[in-house]
Structure formats: C-alpha cells, structure tokens
C-alpha cells in the first residue's frame, strides 16, 4: 500500500506543479479538477471520508465548473510566463523553509484531541465525531465558514455584470429528460447525506453540493428552476448563517454561552442548523456558478 500512497503523493505534487505552470488557462483548469479528485483520494486514504466527499464535490466538481464558466468570459489569451526576479525566489524560498519548519515542529509534538471528543460525545447530540466537532464543539468555526461563503457570493454579486455572450440551446429532449429522471435521485441523495451526517460521514456541505448540482442541471436543461429574483431564494442565501446565529443566541439566553446547546436539545438543533445550512450552501454555490455562466441564446425569460 505504501507504493500506492507514494504514487498518489507524486501525482498530486506533479499535477500541482503542472497546474501552476500551465501556459493555457484551460489546461490549468482541467489539471486543477484532476488534482481535486486526487486530493479527495488522498483524504480517503487518510481515513477522512468527510473531507474526501467535500473535496470531490466542491473542490473538484463545483469549483471546476465555476472556473470553466469564468474562463469562457475571459478574452482568449495565454498567460505569458515571465521570469521571476531573484528577490521573489528568495522571498518564496524563505516562506517555503518556514512552512517546512512549521510542519516539522507539528510532527514532533503529536496531540490527539480524540479522547477529549470521545468523552464528550454522549452529550453532543450526534454520534459521528466529525459532525460533533463541526456543529457542536467548534460550531463557531463552521458558522464563520458559512459566513465566508455568503461573503464570497455577495462580493461576486457586487463585482459581476451578467455576461453578454450567449450559447446555443441544446437540441432535442435528451438533456431535459435525463435531468427530470435524475432529479428525484439527487434530492434523495442530498437528504440521505444530510441525515447520515449525524452518525456517519456526510453533512451539510456535502448535501449542499448535491443540491447545487441539481439546481445547475435544472438551469442547464432550461427547465423552470429557482429564480434568483425571488425573495425565497434571497432568504435562502442568508438562511444558513441566520439560523446558525439565532441558535447560537438561544444558547446565550439559556445561560450556556454563545453557540452552546443543552444536551437534550442538541440533536434537534444540530439537525435544524444542518438543514438550513445545506439549503443555503446549495443555493449559494449554484448561484455563484450561474452568475458566471453566459446566457442561453433565445431562451425564454
């Protein structure tokens, strides 16, 4: 197995180098998506299936779609590689050495928080340790992650004009029929992944990525989807963060402190947060990709 792992590490490093050094942006994007899939494999080998699922769905899938959509709007030009000034080499070299030193000092003092997590797991409200950490013990970090996603979307909205290029609609009914057939399955998978998150790998981010993919497919097939001008959609963007912070305030009112849950209410509260977060993440990720896609020629408004 060690040879497979070494091969994986070699491939990841090689692809990362290729991604940075690609002259054509298209090549860089394709290599980036392949890199994401390999990093997901690496997470799986490190026995972190939660991170592997999120990396494959968001890091490789949706980020790849976002990059490809953005690429279509850029003027066709290759990045001309320019020789770096020696000062930059020195600066980044120093940064690399510092990073290596930092990693070395981490390895020399291994501290596992797992016993601590396991002793408090019965009062966490969920039985999967990763979900317990993400949504109970370190809930503020997850709430801030959601806020960062919301912030990124707001920034994109503020920056982005709708692109004026357009492409031909797909002929025939193959895409629309396939999307109609696949949508119920995708909804089922999204709910299942969310529900499973309390006792096994899965959760809001993975479920949200599936929802985002479903919405994107609806849009691409020119089927009636969710219109971003509707108030329910706009509320959905904010919903995850708002529910998270309201639940956090509830803990403050009950005297447990911000983002603290009473053990007997923890399961319900975590499920509530996760459902709202999954919907928000799905809407936000899909909106980000949709906003950077060109319009379809002659489609109905």
């Amino acid at each position: 197995m060690i040879w497979l792992d070494l091969m994986l590490v070699g491939l990841i490093l090689g692809l990362a180098w290729r991604c940075v050094h690609a002259i054509e942006l298209m090549e860089a994007v394709v290599v980036f998506v392949a890199l994401g899939m390999l990093v997901a494999l690496a997470w799986a080998r490190l026995q972190a299936p939660d991170a592997a699922l999120a990396e494959a769905a968001i890091g490789a899938g949706l980020a790849g779609a976002l990059l490809l959509a953005t690429l279509r709007q850029l003027p066709a030009q290759a990045v001309r590689p320019q020789p770096l000034h020696w000062l930059w080499w020195g600066l980044w070299g120093l940064f690399g050495v510092t990073l290596l030193w930092a990693i070395g000092s981490i390895l020399s003092t291994p501290v596992s928080l797992m016993p601590w997590v396991n002793t408090h797991l019965p009062e966490a409200g969920v039985s999967h340790p990763v979900t317990a950490v993400l949504l109970n013990f370190r809930a503020l970090d997850t709430a801030l992650e959601l806020a960062v996603l919301l912030w990124a979307w707001m920034a994109q909205r503020a920056l982005g004009e709708s692109p004026d290029t357009s492409f031909h609609p797909v002929q025939g009914r193959v895409l629309a029929t396939a999307v109609k057939a696949l949508l119920p399955l995708m909804g089922l998978v999204a709910v299942y992944v969310l529900w499973r998150g309390s006792s096994a790998p899965g959760g809001a981010f993975q479920s949200g990525a599936v929802l985002a993919a479903a919405w994107l497919m609806l849009w691409l097939a020119d089927l009636p989807g969710l219109d971003p001008r509707r108030w329910s959609v706009r509320l959905g963007w904010l919903g995850g963060v708002m529910v998270f912070f309201l639940v956090g305030l509830l803990g403050l009112v009950q005297g447990i402190g911000f983002m603290g849950y009473r053990p007997d209410q923890a399961t319900g509260l975590i499920l509530l947060i996760e459902s709202a977060a999954a919907l928000s993440i799905g809407l936000l990720l899909a909106s980000m990709v949709l906003a950077s896609l060109p319009g379809i020629k002659g489609r109905r408004a």
Partner: peptide
Amino acid sequence: SLALVSAALVSHLIGQSLCA
C-alpha cells in the same frame, strides 16, 4: 448504471457542442 447514464448524457452534450 448511473455512470452509464451520465456518460451517455455528457457524450451527447459534447457532440452537440461540436456540431454547434
């Protein structure tokens, strides 16, 4: 079977894009 459906769909879409 899911991979089959998605492969057929993607091939169809790439083919259409080439025709366009």
